[in-house]
């Protein structure tokens, strides 16, 4: 009887919701609670020794783009902040591009190994995760600093006389982030390439496509979900990176993450820090929306 069936279905749905309620409540609270606190703090007034004073103010949000002149109180565009935003976006995009350029051949290599050795290669890719991020970043520092391995070797072989200045530049940050986030690109790419039917390569060559055309017209569109996933997994944490720019970029080459930390620490401007955090969240969301829409264009089932 249909009515009976419906009643049963409704009952089982109710039970389902009831059973998941504790988890849903916890998740909702844990996800939205801190976010709400940050949002509220961004509209308050900074206290003298950090923390906030419960008095409404838009200075936090205004401080993202403008600085107030100490003498006449006029607003000026904060060039330093814009530089930091631009550097963060630029380095994150470059990190995504580099990890893709290195990760794609790597993932392809692993996916085309015999099934037996594939597990071993994947295992090797994950080994860096076993070490603390800070330790890995300091190790990169040891490799690229003026008296580090690369410079010592190059000077010893006589190729250069002065050490290459890599450490505490944007390049150093880029090297560090590309190294740290590479596995996050390789793993989703591997998953996509692993499902790719290699017969399609032959079909492409057979139908007059060159190697380049097979890559562009057959492989890339089909593994696109993996590329999207990998890019998101690399781009999002890159944008908020804190440890890598701190250790490899020195104090000067800050990214948004360091700038936010500064407001909560030495800057003693929690509302500005909170507003910056919200800005970062907005940038990430907008970037993701653009990216996902661009990636799905022309492929209704992707």
């Amino acid at each position: 009887m249909p009515s009976n069936e419906n009643r049963q279905r409704a009952a089982s749905a109710r039970t389902g919701w009831a059973l998941s309620a504790p988890a849903l409540l916890l998740l909702g609270f844990a996800a939205s609670g801190p976010l709400l606190i940050v949002l509220v703090y961004s509209f308050l007034t900074p206290g003298d020794y950090g923390n906030v004073v419960w008095k409404f103010s838009l200075d936090g949000w205004r401080g993202i783009l403008f600085t107030r002149d100490i003498f006449d109180g006029t607003l000026h565009l904060a060039d330093a902040n814009l530089t930091i935003f631009w550097r963060s976006v630029k380095l994150s995009l470059l990190t995504t591009a580099i990890t893709f350029a290195v990760g794609f051949p790597t993932a392809w290599f692993i996916a085309t190994r015999p099934a037996k050795s594939r597990a071993l290669w994947l295992f090797l890719i994950t080994i860096p995760f076993w070490t603390n991020l800070l330790i890995r970043t300091v190790a990169i520092n040891e490799v690229i600093r003026n008296e580090g391995i690369i410079n010592t070797l190059l000077i010893w072989t006589g190729l250069i006389t002065e050490p290459l200045r890599i450490i505490y530049t944007d390049t150093a940050v880029l090297i560090g982030m590309a190294y740290v986030y590479l596995p996050l690109m390789v793993l989703p790419l591997f998953a996509a390439i692993d499902r790719f039917d290699m017969k399609l390569l032959e079909a492409g060559y057979d139908l007059y496509a060159s190697r380049w055309q097979v890559l562009r017209r057959v492989i890339l569109p089909i593994v696109k979900p993996g590329i999207v996933a990998g890019s998101i997994l690399v781009f999002v944490p890159s944008l908020g990176a804190y440890v890598t720019p701190r250790v490899l970029g020195g104090g000067k080459n800050m990214m948004i993450g360091n700038f936010i930390e500064l407001q909560f620490g030495a800057g003693r401007n929690w509302p500005l820090g909170a507003a910056l955090s919200m800005t970062l969240l907005i940038i990430v969301t907008v970037a993701l929306l653009f990216y996902v829409r661009a990636a799905n264009r022309g492929s209704p089932h992707g």
């Binding site: 039917d197 032959e202 079909a203 007059y208």
Partner: peptide, 20 residues
């Protein structure tokens, strides 16, 4: 000659149609 230079086409056992 590589396959893309041969005026010869193949119908594959698994069809190998482009899913995208």
């Amino acid at each position: 000659d590589p396959p893309n230079r041969r005026p010869v086409n193949t119908v594959f056992q698994s069809y190998a149609l482009f899913p995208h």
